[in-house]
């Protein structure tokens, strides 16, 4: 019974992290494009800001990896 929940848990950990990252990146991306339209020099910084929320999906990935490879 437990083993069936392991891949689901891993999937949830990764998927929800990715969802959160997606929502955050959508907003930051839109704001970043707006900022670049006003000041083109901000392109580099905007790119870094867009990459910021990827920590969420990375954390989700780490948890998923722990669930799959350590707990399983």
């Amino acid at each position: 019974m437990v083993s069936e929940w392991i891949p689901i848990g891993a999937g949830l950990a990764f998927g929800l992290g990715a969802l959160g990252t997606g929502i955050a990146q959508a907003r930051i991306g839109a704001a970043g494009v707006g900022a670049i339209a006003e000041k083109q020099e901000l392109f580099g910084l905007a790119l870094v800001f867009v990459a910021l929320p990827e920590t969420l999906v990375i954390l989700g990935f780490v948890i998923a990896a722990i669930i799959l490879f350590v707990l399983a």
């Binding site: 990827e54 920590t55 990375i58 954390l59 990935f61 780490v62």
Partner: peptide
């Protein structure tokens, strides 16, 4: 601590 875990992206 979160910053340290963030380096997992090197592998991901």
């Amino acid at each position: 601590l979160t910053n340290i875990i963030s380096y997992a992206r090197l592998m991901a």
